[in-house]
Design a protein around this nucleic acid. Structure first.
Length: 198
DNA sequence: TATGCGATTGCCT
DNA sequence: GGCAATCGCATAG
């Protein structure tokens, strides 16, 4: 069980404290090593909630400590933890981590990964390894299949520009990617893909 | 109603 | 290291 008030601060404030946390879903436990913070309406051009509430991002506007999932690139699911009080709509994207329990099950789900470090390195991989699907959107991380243990003390961490965010939301103006330095399960930094063929 | 593209990954050269 | 896959959602008309 975690202290829900931890997620009532903004995503940027809470994100570093989520590093080192243990998230368990159906017997698979992840030690979180990399996250990105996204703020709310009108505050953050890179955030799904920047332009206001829509059917897709509705759960971001709900109670903190719940799961926000979304589908992208026609094939991938990514998972976020809702932050800030109801109506504020900020969130923390889970970008990478180490599987510390239930490795066999995670391997079975991620048959393409070549090493255990790749099981949950990257947001879409992480969701697959934990068995998180779109149907889990809105789930309370303290109930049902989910449980979350926050670290007793904040881990040492680095911060930098967010990965894969296009337009104004990317770059050094929003250094809201946080990771545990030197950890092999942190995804490699990649700037937003330049526009593809015309 | 129509159109463009994304908080990515994995396979190909 | 480079690019194709794939579709729901947001934006424009």
């Amino acid at each position: 069980m975690f202290d829900r008030s931890f997620f009532e601060s903004t995503a940027v404030e809470a994100a570093p404290g989520l590093l080192g946390a243990h998230l368990t879903v159906d017997g698979v436990t992840l030690r979180i090593t990399e996250v990105e913070a996204y703020l709310g309406v009108g505050e953050d051009p890179g955030s799904h909630s920047f332009r206001g509430k829509t059917a897709r991002n509705a759960v971001m506007f709900g109670e903190p400590g719940h799961l926000y999932t979304y589908f992208t690139y026609g094939m991938h699911v990514c998972a976020n933890v809702v932050c800030s009080p109801e109506g504020s709509a900020s969130g923390i994207l889970l970008r990478g981590g180490e599987i510390v329990a239930g490795v066999e099950l995670a391997r079975a789900r991620r048959t393409t990964s070549k090493s255990d470090a790749d099981l949950a390195r990257g947001p879409a991989r992480l969701a697959v390894a934990l068995g998180i699907t779109l149907a889990d959107g809105g789930a309370d991380l303290a109930r049902g299949r989910f449980s979350l243990e926050l670290p007793a003390a904040a881990s040492a961490h680095s911060s930098g520009p967010r990965t894969g965010v296009s337009g104004d939301g990317g770059g050094p103006a929003y250094p809201w990617r946080f990771w545990i330095p030197g950890d092999p399960t942190v995804s490699p930094y990649k700037a937003h893909a330049p526009k593809k063929r015309a």
